[in-house]
Design a protein around this nucleic acid. Sequence first.
DNA 1: AACTTTGATGTTTTTTACGATATCACAGAA
DNA 2: TTCTGTGATATCGTAAAAAACATCAAAGTT
Lengths: 198, 198
Amino acid sequence: MSYETREIADRLREAREAKQLSQRELSRLAGVPQAQISRIESNSVDLRLSSLVALASALDLEIALVPRKAVPAVKSITRQTTDRTVIQPPAIGKEMQQLQKAIRALQIEAPTLPELDELRKAAASLQRLQIDTRYLSHLRSLRHTIERARSTEQWRGIFEAANSMRALRNQIAHFEPASEQRNANRPAYSLDEEDDDA
Amino acid sequence: MSYETREIADRLREAREAKQLSQRELSRLAGVPQAQISRIESNSVDLRLSSLVALASALDLEIALVPRKAVPAVKSITRQTTDRTVIQPPAIGKEMQQLQKAIRALQIEAPTLPELDELRKAAASLQRLQIDTRYLSHLRSLRHTIERARSTEQWRGIFEAANSMRALRNQIAHFEPASEQRNANRPAYSLDEEDDDA
DNA sequence: AACTTTGATGTTTTTTACGATATCACAGAA
DNA sequence: TTCTGTGATATCGTAAAAAACATCAAAGTT
């Protein structure tokens, strides 16, 4: 496809990756088949507006028709508002991903669990800090706690996990105060979900 | 079609009308059949991205994927940048439309005429002022001059018309200085060209 | 090594936009 | 009135996207 559509395709992929979603997950959220998403992102189809809207809105984006003159200003605003994600060391990034995955799995299994929200918030809040690799084992055991709780259906474990996670967050925030509020101007949301679909 | 696409369709129509283009003219510019434009504006098709891009770019618009959070800011910018046109008294509006039509006709007949650009600029500049109905006859005779020049191919008439138009503009700007740059709250539409395609 | 996830690609069938063309009613202007 | 431009529709054939599968190789995890 043409060059103007390329940018749109790229923006979609970036947005998806920024939200740490796989094509399949996005597919579920947007109701667009994964195969189609792959083709769209590689700019090999002339997609219909309905598909674009579905994907965009699943990614918290909106389609705007902007006067050419306003494009630079809009880009600047967009950049400002765009996820400024804390970049974690690779090992930490991976582990956080696993952790999110565990939480998602839990959510599927026990969607009504009230502690679940706590857990998600704590994870989101943790995600916003720069985490040193020395906390890797903490994260891992945190995840194990969650997984164990899930498999045994001992929901108390979730409660404990949420507590430990908050404690960890506070500890990191305390020892590494510089990294907190690194994004002073904008709240931004790095990887938190804020609102998952149910 | 759905509700989110409605807005896009509306934006397209607004942009077209703000540029004083008929569906057929836009059709020519964008290479999209008039019938299709009608369907699109009435939101009765799920148009392909390529069509959207074609129309948008003919209308000097660009498609942007904006984070939800940034939407208000972007709207504000867009509004700011959007041609805010003066709302003329009906009679003046009609006459200005006729005048634009005459210029367009001329453009088709003698596209290479160098005075034509002058003429267009003068008309655009005039358009930006609030024109009192007492200038109606001026406008009308201005138009007649242009039409006569066109039919007789006496291109000198164009030159004169451009001059008179500039003079008229200055006179109005002088007697009605308050109305200049009176960008009311409503962008509305009305008439403005700002920059045409070449 | 066995297993899972991810993104890409292929196939088939169904749906739909698109382009071309032709009207049509309506509104203005001559 | 007559003529012209406008926007909305209708029909038809073609092309293409979309949906629903199924794989598959690569990379990662356990």
